[in-house]
């Protein structure tokens, strides 16, 4: 059961970050009529997958991923995409205070009841962790009673040791088709993975079905703050 929200703000650094773990949830909110804003900090300019023979190069990849991101948002039913203009792999080197202010401005404008991002320090990619730090700091500065709920994604190898099991599980099977369409929209990143995945799904592989149909979140606990 997915709880209805007033407005959901999703903040990730890379096109496709939303696809794997949150796209079913986003589509479910859109079905309920909940407005969803997705702030995507970079265009994944430094993505490594160029193909062999190559379908892109370092300088054309951003434009390709920008179009993929727009298609992914269409597939999810999301109509408020913000591309924030940072460069892939540099988010952690930006001024920390500037990043907090950026998130504060997004929160002030969209007045979300729920914010979704990564969990700081347990999100593997430095951009993920830096984005998460900025979001947590921005929300922390709000008066406790006004803070939106914060759902976080964590997938570092030691996640369960640190956080235990995720406390929020969304069954998004009703939107599985949209999730597959969202993943496929990011073709430059997912085409090989999805080929394998669709074979598994067609064979009703239980792990693949679980991967597709359930999305997991850790509600951020302010009494166990990361800093």
């Amino acid at each position: 059961m997915i709880k209805k929200e007033r407005h959901v703000l999703v903040v990730f650094p890379h096109p496709d970050d939303e696809a794997f773990g949150v796209s079913g949830t986003i589509s479910s909110y859109r079905d309920m009529g909940v407005p969803v804003t997705y702030a995507c900090l970079t265009l994944g300019e430094m993505g490594r997958n160029l193909g062999n023979p190559p379908f892109a190069n370092r300088e054309t990849l951003p434009q390709i991923r920008k179009e993929e991101l727009k298609k992914a948002c269409e597939a999810m039913g999301l109509d408020d995409l913000r591309m924030m203009g940072f460069r892939d792999k540099t988010v952690e080197f930006e001024d920390d205070e500037k990043m907090v202010k950026l998130i504060e401005d997004l929160i002030e404008e969209t007045n979300p009841s729920l914010v979704i991002t990564f969990y700081p320090g347990l999100a593997v990619h430095p951009d993920h962790d830096a984005t998460a730090r900025a979001v947590v700091r921005a929300v922390r500065r709000m008066p406790e009673t006004e803070r939106p709920t914060l759902y976080t994604l964590a997938f570092a190898n030691n996640t369960v040791e640190v956080l235990g099991k995720p406390d929020v599980v969304h069954d998004i099977s009703a939107n599985a088709d949209k999730k597959i369409a969202t993943l496929k929209a990011h073709a430059s990143q997912t085409v090989w993975m999805m080929k394998e995945m669709e074979i598994k799904l067609a064979a009703q592989d239980p792990d693949a079905l679980k991967w597709l149909n359930f999305e997991h979140f850790y509600t951020y606990q302010w009494d166990k703050d990361f800093e």
Partner: peptide, 15 residues
């Protein structure tokens, strides 16, 4: 007019 050079591994990933 930019000269782009890359090293791609067997899977097409830029190194």
């Amino acid at each position: 007019g930019r000269l782009l050079m890359a090293g791609l591994d067997a899977e097409g990933k830029l190194a």
